[in-house]
Design a protein around this nucleic acid. Structure first.
Length: 854
RNA sequence: GCGAAAGUGGCGGAAUUGGCAGACGCGCUGGACUUAGGAUCCAGUAGGUUCACUCCUGUAGGGGUUCGAGUCCCCUCUUUCGCACCA
C-alpha cells in the first residue's frame, strides 16, 4: 500500500489552515449565510408570503406542481421552485396580490414502499419527510404561503376527495366495470393506460400484465370533445396541447351493425372508411370480445379456439400492442352478413384488434387496409377490390400491398363509378337511411380507471351491501378514514381486506351487515383538484368556498414537468370542467399559462440515486448560499430547457454575486452621496453618459426578458453586463456631483434587478444603501426613453451584404447625408473603386447597405 | 412507420420584427498581485490568412428568395421527444 505524501494529515492541516487565514484576510466571500438567515426571518415575520383572499390589488396565482415528499429537496425541486419564486417576486414588485402555495402529493406507493422498507408506518415517515422538506424550502428562501399548505394524505384533504368522488358518482361520471387491466405485479396494483410506458410500469419499470378485474372508472371520455378545445388557455406550450390532442385521438367515421348469420345478433363495428364496405371479406374480433367469450363458454370442447384466446390474452402482454407483432388468428366457424350487399362474411378471432377502441370489432377490408391485407394473405381469405386507382389497373391477386389511397368506386353496386371520397358520405347516408348504422365519432382516450389495490391512498367512499348493492357513504360519515393498523407489505390481495373492524360496516341504507370498498383512489385523483383547495385550504364544510375559488382561479402561471402532459394535466382539466358544471369554479381551464420546465441533468442523464449522479442542493446552499444556486439554475438556460449540471458554472454565479456585493459595499459612501444629487446630463463625460445609458438600457431589457419573455437567463445576463459597466468606474470617490449621481443610480438599480433571482442579497444591498422598505413593495424599476437616445449612433456599412465599414454619426442625421457619409468611409470608398452603385438602402439607426456592380 | 421540436465556438447559451453572428457566463491562453489560491484585477479567445492593416470562410448539408438569411421557402441528414396494429 502506497501513501501519497500530499495526503498526509500534517500537510492537509497546514494547507487548510493557510487557506482559512487567507480567506479571513481577503474577505473574498460575501457573508451569504448570515444574510440569507436574516432575510428569511424578516420575510416570515412580516408574513409577506401570506396572500389575502381579496383586496385592491389584482391577484396573481403562481403554482409549481407539488412534490412527493421524499424527505429531501433535490436539485430538480430547487430548479423548478426557483422559477416559481422569481415569477412570484416579479409579480409582487409589479403590484399584484401574488400567491404561491405549496403542499405535498403524499399518498401513493413510494410512501408505502418506503415505510415497508424502514419498518415504519407511512403516516409517520411521511410527516417526518414533510417537516424536513419544509425546512429545506425555507432554507431556499422561497416565498411560500404556508398558511395554505395541503397534504393529500391528511384526512382534512382527502375528505374532500371523497366528497368529489361522490359528486362525480351522483352525476353519473363514475362506474364500475369488469375488464382486462394493466397489472403491475411488482406494485401489486393496476395502472391506467397513461401509466404504461412501452409495456412497462411508469414507476417501477417492470412488465405490465393483463388481469381481469372489476374496477372503478371516471367517465373522462364524456369530456373528450371539450378536452380537445384549448381556446380558453392563455399560453400553453404547443407541444403539450399537441400531445393531449394525440392522446385523446379524435376520429370521425361510421358505425355499422353486422347481424350474425345464425341468430341475427348485431355486431357493431366502427370504420373511418365506409367507402370500402363492399370490400369486407371477413370480420376481425379480439379474444376479449363479449361474443367470443360467449362462444368459448358455449364450446368448451373447441380446444383450438380456447388455446388461441388464452394465448393471446395471457402470453402476448407486451408485444401484443406493437405493430411489429405478426398478425395471427383463428376462424371462429361463424359468419355474419354484410347488411349492404347481404354477402356472408367469415368471422375471425385475431390478435390485432383492440377491445377498447371503437366498438372492439373490425370489418376487415384486405384490399384497402394494410393490416387486413397481411392477415388475409396469411390465411387465404379472399381480397376484393372496391376502390380502383386512377389507372384502373388494380387486380386483387397481383396486389403487393393494400391500396389505401382514394380512387373510383368499383364492385359496390349503385355506388360504382363515383370518387371514393364522395362515396364516404353517400354510403353513410345510405346506411343511416336503412337503419344499419350511423355517422359517429370515436376517441382514442379511454375512461380513467382510478381503482388501486393499495393501502396508502384515498379510500373510495363506497359500501357494498348484499341487499342494496353499491351504496355511497353518507356525507356525515365522511371522511372514510384510512385505518392505521394495516398489514402492509407483499400481500396477494388488497391490504385493506386485512382490517376487519374497518372492513365490516352496517349498510347506511338498510342497516344490515355490509363491507367497505377496499380499493383506494389513484393519486392522480388527489392532484386533479389541489390547486383549488389552496384557495380555501381550511374549509371543513366544502372542498373550498366557490367565492374564494372564483377569486383565485384559474392559476395564472403553472409550472411543472412535461412528463405530466397526458396524465396530471389532462385529469386536472377534466375535473376542473366537472367542478365548473357543479358551479364551484368559473371558466373552463384550471391553468391559464403553463411553463414546462426542463430537467437538471448530470453526465447527460437525469439525476437519480440509483445512477449515483446526484448533486445535493443542501451542500450548495451551505457552501455558496441559495442565491447562488438560484442564479446558477436560472442563468444556465431558458427555463423550459434541460440544464447540464456544471460545478464551474456554479462558481461563476457565486463570483457574480460576490462582485455585486463588493461593488456596493466597497463604494457605499460614494453611492449614498450620489443618491442625494441630480445629474446635469449635458455636463457628463462620454464614459458617464455610457453608464447612464447602461442603467436605462439594462432596465428596459430586464423588464422585457423577465416579465414578457420569461427568459431569466438573458435578464441575468443584462445585469451582468451592467455590473461590468459599473465596476469599470475605477475611482468613484473622485467623481463630481453630476457623475456621482449617475454612478449612484447605476449601482442603486441593481438590488431591484437582482431581487427575483437572488432575493436575499438584493434585500441586503437595498437596505445597505438606506432605501426604505422591502423590495417586493418597491415597485418595478423604471427607465426613461430620453436616456436611451444617444447623441451618436454607429452605423454599419455593407456592400453587397458584406461588412465593409462602420461610422459614428449624429443620431439625427438624415438619410441622404447618411448615404453620402457612408460612401466617404475609407474602406468603403476603396472597395467601391471603379464600381457601379445600383442602390443604397438605409436602415435607420443601424446600417447603410450598398448594392453595387463591382 | 406517423407526428412534433431542435441542430450556432472547446462548453451552457445570445441574436425579440430578415439587418454588425457568437451577447453573458464557463473553460482556456498570457500578464499583474502572490508563500499559497475554487481569490482579485488586466488583456485575449469561431476558423483560416497576414508583421500588421486587410481579406477569405463560417450558424448540420445542399439549393432558392433578398441589397442583406442563424432567422423565410424547398430538399437531405442527424438528434430529442411523443404516439405507435386506433380500424
Amino acid at each position: 500500500m502506497t501513501k501519497n505524501p500530499d495526503q498526509s494529515p500534517c500537510k492537509i492541516l497546514i494547507k487548510y489552515t493557510l487557506m482559512a487565514i487567507a480567506k479571513m484576510e481577503n474577505c473574498m466571500e460575501y457573508p451569504f449565510s448570515a444574510i440569507e438567515a436574516k432575510w428569511q426571518k424578516i420575510w416570515q415575520d412580516r408574513k409577506i408570503a401570506n396572500a389575502p383572499d381579496g383586496g385592491d390589488k389584482p391577484k396573481y396565482y403562481v403554482l409549481s406542481m407539488f412534490p412527493y415528499p421524499s424527505g429531501v429537496l433535490h436539485i430538480g425541486h430547487a430548479s423548478n421552485y426557483s422559477i416559481g419564486d422569481a415569477i412570484t417576486r416579479l409579480k409582487l414588485m409589479e403590484g399584484y396580490n401574488a400567491m404561491q402555495p405549496m403542499g405535498y402529493d403524499s399518498f401513493g406507493m413510494p410512501a408505502e414502499n418506503y415505510a415497508i422498507m424502514h419498518n415504519s408506518h407511512p403516516r409517520i415517515t411521511t410527516e417526518e419527510h414533510i417537516a424536513n422538506m419544509r425546512k429545506q424550502f425555507d432554507g431556499m428562501g422561497f416565498l411560500l404561503d404556508w398558511e395554505r399548505e395541503v397534504s393529500t394524505c391528511r384526512p382534512d384533504y382527502y375528505h374532500w376527495g371523497q366528497y368529489i368522488f361522490k359528486k362525480l358518482y351522483e352525476d353519473g361520471l363514475v362506474y364500475r366495470k369488469k375488464s382486462f387491466q394493466n397489472w403491475c405485479e411488482e406494485c401489486n396494483t393496476v395502472l391506467a393506460n397513461e401509466q404504461v410506458e412501452d409495456g412497462r410500469c411508469w414507476r417501477c419499470g417492470s412488465e405490465v400484465e393483463q388481469k381481469e378485474l372489476e374496477q372503478w372508472y371516471f367517465r373522462i371520455t364524456d369530456f373528450a370533445e371539450e378536452l380537445l378545445d384549448f381556446s380558453d388557455v392563455v399560453e400553453w406550450p404547443e407541444r403539450v396541447m399537441t400531445m393531449q390532442k394525440h392522446w385523446i385521438g379524435f376520429s370521425e367515421g361510421t358505425r355499422i351493425e353486422f347481424p350474425l348469420e345464425a341468430d341475427g345478433t348485431l355486431i357493431p363495428v366502427f370504420t373511418t372508411r365506409p367507402d370500402t364496405i363492399y370490400g369486407v371479406t371477413f370480420m376481425a374480433l379480439p379474444p376479449e370480445h363479449p361474443l367470443v367469450q360467449k362462444w368459448l363458454a358455449e364450446e368448451p370442447e373447441n380446444h383450438a379456439l380456447h388455446d388461441f384466446c388464452k394465448k393471446v390474452i395471457n402470453e402476448d402482454k407486451v408485444l401484443r400492442g406493437s405493430a411489429e407483432t405478426t398478425k395471427e388468428g383463428i376462424f371462429s366457424g361463424r359468419y355474419c352478413i354484410n347488411p349492404l350487399n347481404k354477402h356472408k362474411v367469415q368471422i375471425w378471432v385475431t390478435n390485432y384488434v383492440l377491445m377498447d377502441y371503437g366498438t372492439g370489432a373490425v370489418m376487415a377490408v384486405p384490399a384497402h387496409d394494410q393490416r387486413d391485407f397481411e392477415f388475409a394473405r396469411k390465411y387465404d381469405i379472399p381480397i376484393k377490390v372496391v376502390i380502383q386507382n386512377w389507372e384502373q389497373n388494380l387486380v386483387a391477386e397481383a396486389m403487393q400491398e393494400a391500396y389505401i389511397e382514394p380512387g373510383i368506386m368499383a364492385n359496390s353496386e349503385h355506388f360504382d363509378g363515383i370518387p371514393s371520397e364522395d362515396a364516404k358520405s353517400k354510403i353513410t347516408a345510405w346506411i343511416a337511411d336503412n337503419a344499419w348504422g350511423e355517422a359517429t365519432k370515436t376517441y382514442r382516450l379511454r375512461d380513467w380507471g382510478i381503482s388501486r389495490q393499495r393501502y396508502w391512498g384515498n379510500p373510495i367512499p363506497i359500501i357494498h351491501c348484499p341487499k342494496c348493492g353499491i351504496v355511497l357513504v353518507p356525507d356525515e360519515d365522511l371522511p372514510v378514514l384510512l385505518p392505521d393498523n394495516v398489514q402492509v407489505g407483499k400481500t396477494t390481495s388488497n391490504p385493506l381486506l386485512s382490517v376487519p373492524e374497518w372492513l365490516n360496516v352496517k349498510c347506511p341504507q338498510c342497516g344490515e351487515d355490509a363491507r367497505r370498498e377496499t380499493d383506494t383512489m389513484d393519486t392522480f385523483v388527489d392532484s386533479s383538484w389541489y390547486y383549488a383547495r389552496y384557495a380555501d385550504p381550511k374549509n371543513d364544510k366544502l372542498p373550498f368556498d366557490p367565492a374564494k375559488a372564483k377569486y383565485w382561479l384559474p392559476v395564472d402561471q403553472y409550472i411543472g414537468g412535461i412528463e405530466h402532459a397526458c396524465m396530471h394535466l389532462l385529469y386536472a382539466r377534466f375535473i376542473y370542467k366537472f367542478m365548473r358544471n357543479m358551479g364551484w369554479v368559473e371558466g373552463n381551464e384550471p391553468f391559464a399559462r403553463l411553463l414546462t420546465q426542463g430537467m437538471v441533468l448530470k453526465d447527460g442523464a437525469k439525476m437519480s440515486k440509483s445512477k449515483g449522479n446526484t448533486v445535493d442542493p443542501q451542500y450548495i446552499i451551505d457552501r455558496f448560499g441559495s442565491d447562488t444556486l438560484r442564479v446558477y439554475l436560472l442563468f444556465a438556460s431558458p427555463p423550459e430547457k434541460d440544464v447540464e449540471w456544471n460545478d464551474d458554472a456554479l462558481m461563476g454565479a457565486f463570483r457574480f454575486l460576490n462582485r455585486i456585493h463588493r461593488l456596493i459595499e466597497g463604494n457605499l459612501d460614494a453611492i449614498k452621496q450620489g443618491l442625494a444629487f441630480e445629474a446635469d446630463v449635458d455636463k457628463l463625460s462620454s464614459e458617464m453618459k455610457g453608464l447612464l445609458f447602461s442603467s436605462h438600457h439594462c432596465t428596459k431589457k430586464w423588464l422585457d426578458d423577465s416579465l414578457q419573455r420569461m427568459q431569466y437567463n438573458t435578464a441575468i445576463a443584462a445585469i451582468m453586463e451592467h455590473l461590468n459597466k459599473c465596476v469599470a468606474i475605477k475611482n468613484p470617490q473622485s467623481l463630481n456631483e453630476d457623475e456621482l449621481a449617475v454612478y449612484a443610480e447605476a449601482c442603486g438599480i441593481i438590488p431591484q434587478l437582482l431581487y427575483p433571482f437572488a432575493p436575499h442579497l438584493a434585500e441586503e444591498l437595498w437596505q445597505m444603501m438606506s432605501f426604505e422598505g422591502l423590495l417586493h413593495e418597491s415597485g418595478l424599476p423604471g427607465y426613461e426613453e430620453k436616456y436611451l437616445v444617444q447623441d451618436t449612433v454607429t452605423y454599419v456599412i455593407q456592400i453587397n451584404g458584406k461588412l465593409r465599414g462602420k461610422m459614428e454619426v449624429p443620431s439625427d442625421m438624415d438619410t441622404e447625408s447618411l448615404k453620402a457619409e457612408a460612401l466617404k468611409v475609407d474602406n468603403v470608398a476603396r472597395s467601391l473603386e471603379g464600381a457601379e452603385i445600383k442602390k443604397i438602402i438605409v436602415v435607420p439607426g443601424k446600417m447603410v447597405s450598398i448594392a453595387a456592380k463591382l
